[in-house]
Design a protein around this nucleic acid. Structure first.
Length: 561
RNA sequence: GCGCCCGUAGCUCAGCUGGAUAGAGUAGUGGCUUCCGAAGCCAUUGGUCGCAGGUUCGAAUCCUGCCGGGCGCGCCA
């Protein structure tokens, strides 16, 4: 609809240029925006104001000329010049109503498009260290990452969801030592407890299972506890496997599944880390100093050079990170998005610098990043400090159990990633009925309920008649709904381009609100068959979009509540 | 000190590739169910868009400088 109008305006501008009203080189991007106020029509453009100077005439006068130059068409029903020179377009109702038929025909696939042209894209998200259960911050990453994936899929991309396990660093040593101490009956604070040991109760659970010789059976791993408190390698292996399984269970409960899991340790085993280091050395961007190997990352915009190999031996964490991204590149992903917490912000420059230094033809801005800000958890009016070492934090599993998967996912995805998020557990639990997600789901259930009532009354929905009588939808509530439905496709495209799932949440709230308003003002099941079927068509289109949108967020669309 | 993010109604947040009287939820007040689900609707109260300059027909939105909050700034990951 918008595109059709933009094309008409383009033709109008071309006409005015031929007529000499506008200089041939005058140009302005044609910007059409959805109006906020219905009195301003459906779409408005500031074209006349933008071109006023070039045409050397007043914006309102130019607006009149533009309007005159617009070719005849079936899209526009009325045009007005308003304010300083806005051109307001009122769309023909027939043209607007067409969206209802489109939605009903496309069903669950409505909104899908070809923007991605089937290109492959990889989204890495969550990527929690296997040193403890997932907390609410990981939950935000999971909710956002998964929604972003769903958006890309809808927009025609072939998406790979990937999880990267840092299972090879110092923190894993701490984990192994912590479990070992528990195996020996030590607790946090006891003499001999590791300085940076993990204090949470789950460490004791891991130790107990290890000593009991329990088996961890998961998709890609089968590990048996060796029950030997002196075998630190065995403990490490068991603990990582245990915690990975725990995280998988949490993610499953959250409705998030990954296609590929990559272990940092595997990059060492395959020699990819060594190979990357060698290539970096060969590239001439490295140097030795103070017994350490450095990357001259300042050549690529970093504010200081970075150590690659420590003087005591061993690589710093970003070296396997670079090797990992080389691997992603070699797997053929022209686009890679890493969704992570903003506290990892500093790694971006470093990883990109390493990739540039390799001179593999990787673009400077590759990979892309979506960073989400911290989640603050409130409980009993007080902030709950999240500290893995202190063992006091809110796990994702707790949240799902208490708040429910739907509400948790909605809350965590409904805010812009760049904004800090306050998650008030008391509010989410005790006032769960006021939760916005129920408001949206309720609208969906209401349409289902209308359909039930229709059947109870011995009536049937006649789609053909409904679509043939859409012109009967003429009240403000109906018009508002039709207009909103018409914006779904545009919204979905923007949410994907900007990697901002919260746009979906906002849209759904608006749509649900407008439906509730319509529902309260007008009966759907009425004697007038033509109008009844038209309203049913509208309601079913609304239900479909609510369903599709909730699906993008990973939230269910219940038929009854 | 440097880098990134944020500062909009009592609270939680949208709006930010400049547009027409600044929006929603929640909290407060007052209404609406012999009629498809009141988990709803309608009305109303509430804002110097952190502050000060600048850019222009027009700034919550762009630029600069301050102030306030968060996160980073390691031969940790």
């Amino acid at each position: 609809m918008k595109q059709a109008l933009a094309k008409l305006l383009e033709q109008a501008i071309g006409q005015l240029q031929r007529d000499g009203v506008l200089p041939a080189d005058a140009s302005a991007t044609i910007k059409l925006e959805n109006t906020r106020d219905r009195a301003h029509g459906d779409l408005a453009t500031n074209l006349a104001m933008a071109l006023g100077k070039a045409a050397k005439c007043k914006p309102r006068e130019l607006a009149a000329l533009i309007i005159e130059a617009i070719p005849d068409n079936g899209v526009i029903s009325k045009v007005e010049i308003a304010g300083p020179g806005f051109i307001n377009f009122f769309l023909a109702q027939d043209a607007r109503n067409a969206v209802i038929a489109d939605i009903l025909h496309a069903g669950p696939r409505y909104g899908a498009n070809d923007d991605g042209a089937g290109e492959r894209i990889q989204v890495e998200f969550v990527s929690a260290n296997p040193t403890g259960p997932l907390h609410i911050g990981h939950g935000r990453g999971a909710a956002l990452g998964d929604c972003i994936c769903r958006l890309f899929e809808l927009n025609g991309w072939q998406v790979t969801r990937e999880f990267y396990y840092n299972d090879a660093g110092q923190q894993i040593n701490n984990l192994a030592l912590s479990v070992q101490s528990r195996c020996k009956g030590l607790g946090p604070g006891d003499p001999g407890w590791p300085v940076d040991g993990y204090r949470g109760d789950y460490i004791a659970e891991v130790a107990e299972a290890y000593m009991a010789g329990r088996t961890i059976d998961a998709e890609d791993q089968h590990v048996v506890g060796a029950a030997d408190p002196e075998d630190i390698e065995s403990i490490r292996h068991f603990a990582v496997a245990w915690l990975r399984r725990e995280q998988d269970v949490d993610l499953q409960a959250f409705g998030v599944a990954f296609d590929v899991y990559t272990l940092e340790s595997s990059l060492y085993e395959t020699g990819q880390v060594e190979q990357t280091v060698q290539q970096l050395v060969d590239s001439g961007h490295c140097y030795e100093r103070d017994d350490a190997l450095w990357l001259r990352s300042t050549d690529f915009g970093d504010d200081k050079d970075r150590v690659m190999r420590k003087s005591a031996g061993g690589y710093t964490y970003f070296v396997p990170d670079v090797a990992y991204h080389v691997d992603k590149w070699q797997r053929g992903f022209k686009r890679v998005i890493n969704e992570q917490g903003a506290d990892h912000h500093s790694t971006i420059t470093r990883v990109r610098a390493g990739l540039q230094a390799l001179e593999l033809g990787i673009p400077a801005g590759w990979p892309e990043y979506v960073l989400h800000q911290m989640v603050t958890v409130m409980r009993g009016g007080e902030e709950v400090k999240i500290s893995k070492r202190a063992g006091s934090y809110v796990t994702l599993r707790d949240l799902i159990d208490e708040v429910g998967q739907d509400a948790t996912r909605y809350f965590l995805a409904a805010r812009a990633p760049s904004s800090q998020l306050v998650f008030d557990i008391d509010l989410a639990i005790s006032r769960s009925n006021d939760n916005p997600v129920y408001y949206i789901q309720y609208a969906h259930a209401r349409v289902c309920s209308v359909m039930d009532k229709l059947a109870q009354d011995g009536l049937q929905y006649n789609r053909e008649q409904g679509l043939a009588n859409l012109a009967l939808l003429s009240n403000d509530n109906e018009k508002a709904l039709v207009k909103r439905l018409g914006q779904y496709g545009e919204m979905v495209g923007k949410a994907c381009r900007e990697c901002e799932p919260h746009l979906v949440a906002n849209y759904l709230r608006e749509l649900a609100g407008e439906f509730h308003s319509f529902y309260n003002n007008h009966k759907v099941i009425i004697d007038d068959t033509a109008l009844r079927n038209a309203r049913l068509s509208l309601s079913l289109a609304v239900r479909q979009i609510l369903h599709n949108g909730l699906d993008l967020l990973g939230v269910s669309a219940p038929e009854k509540m």
